[in-house]
Design a protein around this nucleic acid. Structure first.
Length: 216
DNA sequence: AATACGGGGAT
DNA sequence: ATCCCAGTATT
């Protein structure tokens, strides 16, 4: 992590310790890599609030890839349906089969092997690598993209965002840092009507004060 | 490089 | 009524 990024990372981590969404069920300690992978798939284009209700019943009913493969397809689909993008039910089934066939039911640590799994793209692979295995990278989703583009003044669709996100990830706290960016972007640096007023990053944010979104 | 998938909450 | 959400697979 370059020292020049500390005006970003330090206040962000401090904010996270105080105001982060620490109660989200997939963040509980002792979640297995498989359980984290399931959470990430359910969270694709889906709000944390929506997933939080369905998550515990899901991983309780299907605690392993074996349980997914053994279960009736329509039953899994019924649990995904309220979240939308119900084809993810099929993703999870196929992914679970691949986990059994290729990795003897375990979640691989390598994010490129992770991304070979059905329903697991670059983002989800990185996310699992960070939260399950502590890899020193970032995962750029909608929230992180918006936050970094605003703070550093980068174009929203710039490839530089992903590069920068990796560079500034603190090697010893990559998971907390990612959660911190997600929570901060969801609660303060929101898509519409960001709370720039009492933003703890305000002094150094390129876009501070221009309350219109889409900071570039 | 576009497009389909999607229900639910916020504005 | 429209926008948005911890994206990915498929044209």
């Amino acid at each position: 992590m370059p020292s020049s990024s500390r005006p970003f990372t330090d206040p962000l981590l401090r904010w996270y310790e105080r105001h982060g969404r620490h109660g989200l069920p997939w963040r509980a300690t002792e979640r297995s890599p498989y359980e984290l992978l399931i959470a990430e798939v359910l969270l694709q284009r889906t709000t944390a609030a929506a997933v939080s209700g369905a998550y515990v019943p899901f991983v309780t009913r299907y605690p392993t890839p074996e349980a997914v493969v053994a279960a009736p397809s329509d039953e899994i689909e019924d649990r995904i349906a309220p979240l939308g993008l119900s084809k993810r039910a099929g993703f999870i089934e196929r992914c679970s089969g691949q986990l059994l066939a290729r990795h003897s039911g375990k979640i691989p640590r390598c994010r490129y092997e992770l991304a070979e799994l059905h329903g697991v793209g670059a983002y989800t692979a990185r996310s699992v690598a960070v939260h399950a295995f502590g890899e020193d990278v970032s995962a750029v989703d909608t929230n992180v993209r918006r936050l970094i583009s605003r703070f550093f003044g980068l174009e929203c669709d710039s490839d530089a965002i992903a590069v920068l996100a990796d560079e500034i990830a603190p090697s010893d706290r990559s998971s907390d840092f990612l959660y911190a960016m997600l929570d901060f972007a969801a609660d303060v640096c929101t898509s519409r009507n960001p709370e720039c007023g009492d933003c703890p990053l305000g002094d150094d944010c390129v876009s501070t004060g221009l309350a219109s979104d889409n900071a570039d």
